[in-house]
């Protein structure tokens, strides 16, 4: 059974100006042991998509339609009310959180509660789901710290007494504390310097393999995702536009957006080229354009693109694209 099955997921945010179409008709699957990368510009919906798995969404998020099946269970039945509003604290959800799905937040700097010790915060995560004694918890935390490489005597320190890298590691430690099936890493390296970044990335992969959990890696930096993930989903304007193995995305991107994205990243090898940018700006998600949402910026856009919305279709085994002219569009670097 697939770890995760998302069908037709549509989530809107309600603002005073109107409804923001954060995610529209997203279909996605994940298997055990996978590392899936979610890539896209800010506002493309990758965060919403990832977080929606545990329904960690703001008050004004409405799940308009769709289902999220985690290990066979449709989580939407647990948490979604009739009008689409999400009951974030429903008991069923809470049980799953952290035990089955944990999150490594974007900036560990701010992710910890400043007035509670790190140790206590990790203990809290454990004790919420397991009824064990203080001694046991302590031992477990010590073990975790050893894994991630934080000295034991720091367990009772406060977050502001940790360095940035240490905090990130504490974050990772906490995320694996209950041995979850799915770890969501939200921009795991954004706030770090390059060297630490390298280390952390390696650790992440190591841990994931060791514990045999799956991982979703969210990033706007395609190079990070390239390093970490086995499969990559490219998102644009609330939709998945391309989903394929990492190798394939890089070797043969089929969606104009993916291609443009790849071109936009400078390569150390190769000749010096002018930085390519993608013309235009992301669409207004309150009134998304009809047809293909990328069409206003797409160099290959034809009339059909403006009218008909392209659906995700398999263009080759394991490689899906949402573009009418994916075959014609030649990719590759």
């Amino acid at each position: 059974m697939a770890l995760l099955e998302i069908r037709n997921l549509t989530i809107y945010y309600r603002l005073s100006e109107g409804w923001v179409h954060a995610i529209e008709n997203v279909n996605m699957d994940m298997e055990n042991g996978e590392r899936l990368g979610l890539v896209g510009e800010s506002g493309c919906g990758k965060t919403t998509l990832a977080y929606s798995i545990t329904f960690l969404l703001p008050n004004n998020a409405y799940l308009k339609k769709g289902s999220i099946k985690f290990l066979g269970r449709d989580l939407t039945t647990l948490a979604v009310r009739k009008d689409g509003r999400i009951n974030m604290f429903s008991e069923g959800l809470r049980g799953i959180r952290w035990k089955d799905i944990s999150i490594i937040f974007q900036s560990a700097m701010n992710s910890f509660n400043p007035v509670i010790t790190i140790g206590d915060q990790i203990a809290e995560a454990i004790l919420t789901h397991e009824n064990i004694g203080k001694e046991e918890v302590r031992k477990r935390i010590e073990a975790l710290f050893e894994i991630v490489g934080i000295p034991k005597d720091r367990i009772d320190s406060y977050p502001h007494e940790y360095s940035g890298g240490m905090k990130q590691r504490a974050m990772i430690a906490m995320s694996i504390a209950l041995n979850p099936k799915l770890i969501i890493a939200d921009e795991p390296t954004t706030a770090l310097d390059v060297i630490t970044q390298d280390k952390i990335l390696a650790e992440l992969v190591k841990l994931q393999k060791e514990f045999n959990s799956s991982m979703i890696i969210i990033s706007h930096d395609i190079s990070i995702v390239a390093q970490l993930s086995t499969r990559i989903a490219i998102m644009y304007a609330g939709q998945i536009v391309e989903l394929a193995l990492t190798r394939e995305i890089f070797k043969g991107p089929r969606h104009p957006y993916t291609m443009a994205l790849l071109k936009a990243f400078p390569s150390i090898k190769g000749e010096k080229k002018r930085l390519a940018t993608i013309q235009g700006s992301p669409p207004d998600l309150i009134n998304p354009p009809k047809g293909c949402r990328f069409s206003p910026r797409c160099q290959f856009a034809k009339e059909r693109c403006l009218i008909e919305e392209p659906l995700l279709r398999e263009i080759s085994p394991g490689h899906t694209v949402a573009c009418h002219f994916a075959e014609e569009v030649s990719g590759g670097r």
Partner: peptide, 29 residues
């Protein structure tokens, strides 16, 4: 608006705990 609130909720804490142990405990300062 702080991230640690999200974290608290992500950990599966009850609403009450998120509110009082994490949110208002900081808000009171």
């Amino acid at each position: 608006g702080e991230e640690y609130i999200n974290l608290a909720a992500a950990k599966g804490l009850k609403e009450r705990d998120v509110l009082f142990t994490h949110a208002s405990r900081n808000a009171i300062l």
